[in-house]
Design a binder for these strands. Structure first.
Lengths: 116, 116
DNA sequence: GCCTATAATGATAAATTTGTCCATATGGAT
DNA sequence: ATCCATATGGACAAATTTATCATTATAGGC
């Protein structure tokens, strides 16, 4: 696995961004919140993300204690991910971020921040 | 300048992270909020960040309409950055992210998310 | 004249994240 | 026998972000 070489920042905002900042993490958390729990379901519900990438992001979220995993002894293998209490506590933050971002998108005619 | 090749996500959370997610951006906004405005001052107040990197991040924040720039015709050149109203509107979001992150750091003994 | 400080940028390297392709294992359906 | 779906991970490539080094320009202090 990859080992960091650059020093990391450890104050609040940086920590939150590290936990939540992966490209697909907010999508995943949104799905989990809606009850979409299996990797293959997530993949079908998140256009553009491959199963491989989602697995990576889920693993990181798990390492952050934001989600946990339930494995069923079935075939084909059945796995479900759930929000932990930490993940739940992140929800209001996600909502706040989502609202700001949507207001931004509205005001700037759907251009992304860096471009306009 | 760098031109993106991968598709970008354009819902709220992703937009907020794009605006705020650069390594030093939260530090910079925090400083601006405290009244530290000149690039050289920022550099002295943010250990580990070079003037070059801060300039880049300031430029991106400017492109996002989160900060604006005042140039004084003095020598040596004097430049000051200020939060725009968008920047101000981001403040509650930053506070929410900061609180969650700090709580996380407390609970997980100062380890960063990915490591623990 | 040389060194200081100021702000910005080009060129390039290093680090990190994201993506693609392939492989594994298992039981059921065709 | 072959293909399907399931979940995961190795190996590696591509994309992106961050960092380093050098250069520009200007006026003052020594």
């Amino acid at each position: 696995m990859y080992v960091k070489k650059l020093p990391e920042l450890d104050y609040g905002v940086a920590t939150t961004i590290k936990a939540l900042g992966g490209k697909w993490k907010a999508c995943i958390l949104d799905c989990l919140h809606l009850g979409i729990r299996r990797p293959s379901e997530l993949c079908r519900n998140i256009p553009g993300a491959s199963l491989r990438v989602l697995s990576q992001q889920l693993k990181e979220l798990e390492a952050c204690h934001i989600v946990y995993k339930k494995v069923y002894a079935e075939v084909p293998l059945r796995v479900e991910y759930y929000l932990t209490s930490w993940g739940e506590s992140l929800w209001p933050v996600i909502v706040a971020m989502n609202e700001w971002g949507n207001a931004y998108l509205h005001h700037h005619c759907n251009s992304t921040p860096q471009e306009s």
